[in-house]
Design a protein around this nucleic acid. Structure first.
Lengths: 154, 154
DNA sequence: CGTCATCTGCGAATGATTCGCAACGTAGCA
DNA sequence: TGCTACGTTGCGAATCATTCGCAGATGACG
């Protein structure tokens, strides 16, 4: 049977094969970027990914990261998510999940996308609206900030 | 009697009253911006709003627009939505409605907030996360765009 | 009508992302 | 294995959106 870590290895080769099939070349910066995305497991900004890649290949330029990120998104390998006002974040397409973003402290809670299923279904059946599975994000207050919010006052 | 246009007028006064209550001043740029947002009816970028305002008060600066947009968002009067990679867009916040925003054609479908209830409840009970009722918005594709999306192709 | 804090206009600063170009490296072929 | 062709890269400048700092203007209130 397949060990868990093998999944990542297979994933890497899978992506490389896809690149190859597209006529794209498998370069060192590209391979390192994909590895970083796989190892990241969550969302990372271009800059964070660049730092990760540069720890193994210092000469890789930020613009190269952006270019590859764009290409990988085009291939459907990764997804771009934009929080608040800062830099965009990226994560593997397979790691699909909903986001609960606290407007107060900024913490992001990752939740299984099944949480959005009922909403998706109703939107579809009742309004013919297909919710974009890549943008399952809601804003609000996390449990900690919610608690301090409840303190009596004013 | 109240004509439809009066609704907007009431809305304007409502917002101005809110500003007043906050200790904020009612200035010309601010009033014009709110009017523009009300008349817009949909999402507009800061730049578009600036153009609108400047058509009536040419000296209003873009940075003033941004500052007021920020303030209005803080007050819950408007919401910021980010499409793809460009500028952020803003629109009036509905009191307690969900929004289904089509990323394709930009149409916004207002839906009863009950649609978000299961999601809200689960987020609360399972993660202690309180979803902000002013940000019940999901992106996706409306029925029309969804249909054209389904057209067969290469 | 005067006082004072809030706002504004303006341009520079910042932060994120994209572009142009010449050098470089990978892939395919003989 | 060596050559050729073309996708890629590194680098810095350019672009785009948004924010900041400041001094003067303006609205709220007595």
């Amino acid at each position: 049977m397949r060990a868990g870590q093998n999944v990542s290895a297979e994933r890497l080769e899978d992506v490389l094969a896809l690149l190859h099939a597209q006529g794209d070349r498998v370069t060192t910066p590209r391979r390192l970027l994909i590895e970083s995305l796989i190892e990241a497991g969550g969302h990372r900004t271009a800059e964070e990914l660049a730092a990760e890649v540069q720890s193994r290949a210092p000469d890789v330029h930020l613009s190269t990261i952006y270019r590859n990120l764009e290409e990988l998104e085009r291939l459907g390998v990764i997804e771009q998510v934009r929080f608040g006002g800062g830099a965009a974040t990226y994560h593997l397409a397979a790691a699909r999940h909903g986001h609960l973003v606290c407007s107060e402290c900024g913490v992001t809670i990752e939740v299984p996308d099944e949480l959005f299923r009922p909403l998706e279904r109703t939107a579809k059946t009742r309004y013919g609206f297909t919710i974009d599975p890549h943008h399952l994000a809601m804003r609000g207050r996390c449990v900690a900030c919610s608690a301090s919010e409840h303190s009596p006052g004013g």
